[in-house]
Each structure stands twice: as structure tokens, then as C-alpha cells.
Write a protein that binds this DNA or RNA. Sequence first.
DNA 1: TTCCAGGACCGGG
DNA 2: CCCGGTCATGGA
Length: 285
Amino acid sequence: MPTAVKTELSIAKAAEFDIKKTFECGQCFRWNADEDGIYTGIVGNKVLKIRELGGSVVCDCEEDELPFWRDYFDLDVDYAEAASRFTQPEYLRLCADYGAGIRILRQESWEALCSFIISQCNNIPRIKKIIEALCVSFGEELSVDTYSFPSAERLASLSESDLAPLRSGYRASYILDAARAVSEGRLSFDELRDMPAEEALAKVKEINGVGDKVANCFMLYGLHRMDRFPIDVWMKRALKAHFPDDFDPEVLGEFSGLAQQYIFYYARTEEGGRRSNVSQKRKNC
DNA sequence: TTCCAGGACCGGG
DNA sequence: CCCGGTCATGGA
């Protein structure tokens, strides 16, 4: 499918914003590339095509939209500076170098919460498939074959049988519980932003189907709390293999979530294929 | 057929 | 507090 690009406004240097790593490091599920490496993403009711061109990252958008996208891509923060403290253990340094150019996106809160509820005990291709089906079924059609992420209010009006075609399994009831909590005001993103971390974490975990890992992912990616450090199966493996037994992510400081992203991305892309003999026993997730 | 995927929850020891 | 079983689905 040829992608028609109208404008090419530079938004950043490729060195500080690697779009492939950023979109494929596991933090988001709705940015997809065509065969030419042009990524298309949908944020709210905005659609953007973006690609790398001659050492720069260029956007197909109007100039007055650039501030929105600069904020979304978090381009006013110096990630190289933030990563400069990730020096030990040596494995972390390796991961940080490998992931250089990754940006932590300022995703929409509801979309992030709902997406990471779907992510549990699931693989990324199927997560993306379920989310896309959710958008096609219940989002708004912004243009041809382009759908917004459905609002919490919209999903709260549905039943489990409405969600059955998504094949999301036992996560369907979790999605509905979260949608209802948000639409009824029991869970306020504005309030969560101003809460101490532990208090916000406990509040989010009141939703059925949201445990420690999903709550931390939501706080990192949906509230941009950069000090959250979600631990999934990949992180557990990496921590066990390459970090001291008593390692505490707190020592990584206010950007520990970025360190987590570097580790996850490296472990999944470099070590994923050859997960040698040390596969710990785990009964079906 | 069995294992695994960015888990959560519940009951029992 | 930690353990094992269970939940639903599809790809390898």
C-alpha cells in the first residue's frame, strides 16, 4: 500500500528520535510501518505519518500541529542526559546504548490503561490485533480504514457479548470494569496525576484485572510517570541473569522507567530468539 | 501435543 | 508471604 506523503516537516534529529525503536520497543501498539518504513499512528482524533529522511525525522502534518507531536514524542527532554547515569551493571549500559533514540511516548491515559489490560499474558502481535479490532468495532472512523481508540464511555455501554468477537478471552470483563470505573468517575486520571506514586498505584489496582505490572505500565506510559519500573516475564529474566539479587530499581532515579524500557527492548529483540536453557518453570504464564 | 505470551486472582499452606 | 491452579486465545 503506497503511502502518500504531502509535507515533510522536520521534527527532530534521527539520533535523538529513532522511530523504529520507539514504535517497536513494546510501549505502544498502534504505530505501524508500511514497506517503505513510513509509520502511521493515531492519537486521539489525529493521524500522523512519520519517517526518517536524511538524518532527520519528518512529519506529514501542518506546521501548527508540530507542538502537539513534539509533546507526544517528549522531544523537550534530553534522553541522552537521562541515560548517562545508567552505567551499572555493565548489562544496563549495554541496553541503554542499544536502545539509544527510544522516546517514551506521552500516550493517552485511557488508551494506555485499556491496552495494557489487554496485554496481560498475551503476545504483542495478538495484543495489537485485539486493539485494532476494538478500534474498528467501537472507535470512530476518522478516515478510510482509520479508527480512533474508543472512549471509556463508549466501551462502558457495552456487554461482554459485544466484546466477544474481539477474542480477548478473560480480559473482556476487565476492559469493561475499567471502562465503567473511568466513565463513572471512580477513576480520575487528573486525580491520579497529583497523587503520590504508591497511592496512585493502589487506586488503579482497584480495577479488576489490574495488578502490579499493568498498573505500573499504565503509570509509566499513560501518566508519563518516568520513575515507574514495570516487571514482566522478560524483565524478570533479565534481572535474574544480569543484576544483583538485591537490586532495587529505585537507585536508577527519576528515569528508571526509561532504563526499564531499554532493558525490555534489548532482552526481547536481542535475546528473545535464543532463550537458552535457563527457562524457569512457569505454568501457563 | 505442549509451550508460551509485557498477569491477575484466589485459596491453601 | 509464597505457592499452585485457573482463567481464554492463538501461534510456534
